[in-house]
Computed example of a mutant assay.
Amino acid sequence: MYLQTWMGTSTTLDPETPLYHMYRDLAMNEEDREILPRQNIRYDITVIPPAVLAGEYVKTKGHYHPENPAGIGYPELYQVLAGEVHFLLQRKNLSDVVAVAASAGEFVLIPPGYGHVSINSGKELLVMANLVSTQFESEYALYEEMRSGAFYAMEDNRNGWVRNPW
């Protein structure tokens, strides 16, 4: 069991409770449902509630994209539909780690060669849409091995970003 802060109140959270929801391969209408697959593009929605677990803001698991046939990693485009997010972008060797803040209406491009974690850094529900190629599967192993990204986004202002000791 974990102690979770949810909008200022503490509750006990069962470890089986999902921390976020992903809705994959969506379409606005039937025309989009036909066009997107022909272009090898998938449209997804991710919803992350405003919560803090053990002092850390709730986030996605994190993943990398493999290289495409041209030898360049696949990019991913996000749009924040509601709420506030911090994307923690990092290269596999951690030679570059960048935090990008975005709020409703803004777009963030995850460049080739970067893995990413999405963190609900606000006090409201975070809803994001993304476009990504259907030609690969995300790589989660390095994030699992590191037990997350290079840094943890902490609620405590004194600590803020805390380096992952991995």
Rank of each mutant, 00 (worst) to 15 (best):
E31S: 06
L19G: 11
R33C: 02
R33V: 01
L26W: 06
Q39F: 03
H21A: 09
R33G: 03
P37G: 07
A51D: 10
I41E: 03
I45T: 05
L53S: 12
H21I: 06
A54H: 13
D25H: 15
H21W: 15
H21V: 05
E31G: 04
R33P: 00
D44P: 05
A27N: 08
R24P: 06
Y23H: 15
M28P: 01
Y57R: 02
V52M: 09
P37F: 11
D44S: 13
I45Y: 00
P49Q: 02
Y23A: 09
Q39D: 04
E34F: 00
T17M: 11
I41P: 02
V52R: 04
Y23V: 12
Y43G: 00
V47H: 04
A27T: 01
V47L: 09
I35D: 03
I45N: 01
Q39N: 10
Y20E: 02
M28T: 03
I35L: 11
E34L: 10
A27L: 04
D44K: 04
G55N: 08
T46M: 12
G55K: 07
M22T: 11
L19H: 05
P37H: 10
M22E: 13
L36G: 01
Y23G: 07
D32C: 09
I48Y: 11
I48M: 05
Y20L: 10
G55A: 09
Y57Q: 00
M28H: 05
M22N: 11
N40A: 14
L36T: 00
A51Y: 09
L53A: 12
G55H: 08
Y23K: 13
P18M: 04
M22H: 08
A27C: 06
E56L: 02
T46I: 13
A54N: 15
I45D: 03
P49G: 09
T46L: 11
I45Q: 09
A54E: 15
P50Q: 06
R33A: 14
H21K: 12
A51E: 13
Y23M: 14
H21Y: 14
Y23P: 11
L53T: 14
Q39P: 00
Q39H: 08
Y57W: 10
R33L: 07
I48P: 13
R33W: 01
P18H: 08
H21C: 02
T46Q: 04
E34D: 09
L36I: 01
D44M: 10
D44Y: 07
P18L: 05
Y57L: 03
R33I: 01
E56M: 07
E30H: 09
L26S: 05
A54I: 07
M22F: 08
Y57N: 00
Q39G: 03
A27F: 11
V52P: 14
P50F: 14
G55I: 08
